[in-house]
């Protein structure tokens, strides 16, 4: 089975910046990426995540700072010598080659013997379940299949690091969820370090070991999906990863996830309600309901409740009380 470079693949990004003229695209980023880790760079467009990935791949020069693989600087190593696999946005498959030739390309340009290439390509096609399409051209494949060819091609020469630039961007929603599972499974099996760029928070949450939230070329917060979701440090992190209510109090701003709030008709809850007010609107989503709530102080809150828990159906215009556990509201940094 697939043998990854088990002793290689940690990546150090040290104070890396990128300027295009006077425009600063990436601003002094420090990152320590562990061997075998699935790290996601998450941010809106223009946040510098793709620029950072292109610098790691070697397609863009670093303005200042240094990138190192296993402690050895690679900033001056050209892209073709870095040995990083990459899955491009839109896949960038070779249209004039068959699937087999695409996947074997990296070994073929390294002048490996024909038999070794054949064996390795078969193994990769098996990994991505495309064995029966080996002799087709990329133009004859569906989007999802092309995506898997791109993945097999990038993994075929056993790179220590695999870079993925929005690889699911071109797929439709349903297929995307399916491919996420496959991608995570392949990551588990090959053990290669994955660096994954996306603007989709669901992809980031479901696949990553750690997520880097970026904005305007800088890192906002780094952590596991759990840490980022439960303990966002600022409004941007809380708002970009999942939804959040922001409560402005005298001692600062608190983030409160809509699903952590319990809502009861006035006077029916146990204990002292945290807030009271009226229900503005209820939107029904099947498994859950989204309630827009206006407090007596004029604050607007979003409350998500599971439909099955809504035993005493609430109505629009009704007064109600809000409850949440201690610690559910997270104090944000200034």
């Amino acid at each position: 089975m697939f043998e990854a470079n088990s002793d290689k693949g940690s990546l150090q990004v040290r104070n890396v910046s990128k300027y295009f003229g006077t425009f600063c695209a990436v601003d002094g980023i420090d990152l320590e990426i562990q061997r075998g880790e699935f790290l996601t760079l998450l941010g809106p467009s223009g946040s510098g995540k793709t620029t950072l990935l292109m610098m790691i791949a070697g397609f863009l020069d670093i303005t200042t700072g240094d990138i190192a693989l296993d402690g050895n600087s690679i900033s001056d190593v050209p892209a073709e010598k870095r040995n990083f696999g990459m899955v491009f946005q839109g896949y960038a498959l070779f249209p004039h080659m068959t699937v087999r030739e695409n996947v074997g390309y990296a070994l073929s340009v390294r002048k490996r013997p024909e038999s070794e290439i054949r064996e390795k390509v078969n193994e990769m096609l098996d990994l991505v379940q495309l064995t029966e399409f080996a002799d087709r051209k990329p133009g004859q494949l569906s989007g999802g299949q092309q995506q898997r060819v791109a993945l097999a091609r990038a993994l075929c020469f056993e790179p220590p690091v695999l870079l993925l630039d929005e690889p699911l961007g071109a797929l439709d929603k349903k297929l995307r969820v399916e491919v996420q599972d496959q991608l995570k499974d392949i990551h588990r099996r090959v053990g290669t370090t994955f660096i994954y760029v996306t603007h989709d928070q669901e992809e980031a949450l479901s696949m990553s070991d750690r997520i880097v939230i970026m904005r305007d070329g800088a890192v906002e917060q780094v952590g596991t999906p759990y840490e980022l979701y439960e303990k966002p440090i600022n409004e941007f992190a809380a708002g970009f990863l999942g939804k959040s209510n922001f409560l402005h109090r005298s001692d600062g701003v608190y983030a409160l996830r809509p699903e952590k709030i319990d809502i009861r008709p006035s006077g029916t809850g146990e204990g002292e309600p945290r807030l009271s007010g009226t229900i503005q609107s209820i939107t029904y989503f099947g498994s859950m309901q989204r309630i827009m709530f206006l407090t007596t102080d004029g604050e607007e809150l979003e409350v998500d409740i599971d439909s099955w828990r809504n035993r005493d159906p609430l109505a629009e215009g009704q007064s109600a009380d809000l409850f949440w556990d201690k610690g559910a509201a997270v104090k944000l940094e200034e």
Partner: peptide
């Protein structure tokens, strides 16, 4: 031509000459 295909070739370890002969010229 989609120039990302040439980037992909370089990323897979092909020299400039190899990329030209095996990807650019056929395309």
């Amino acid at each position: 031509l989609d120039m990302r295909v040439m980037d992909a070739s370089r990323n897979l370890g092909a020299s400039g000459q190899q990329t030209f002969m095996r990807v650019y010229l056929p395309l």
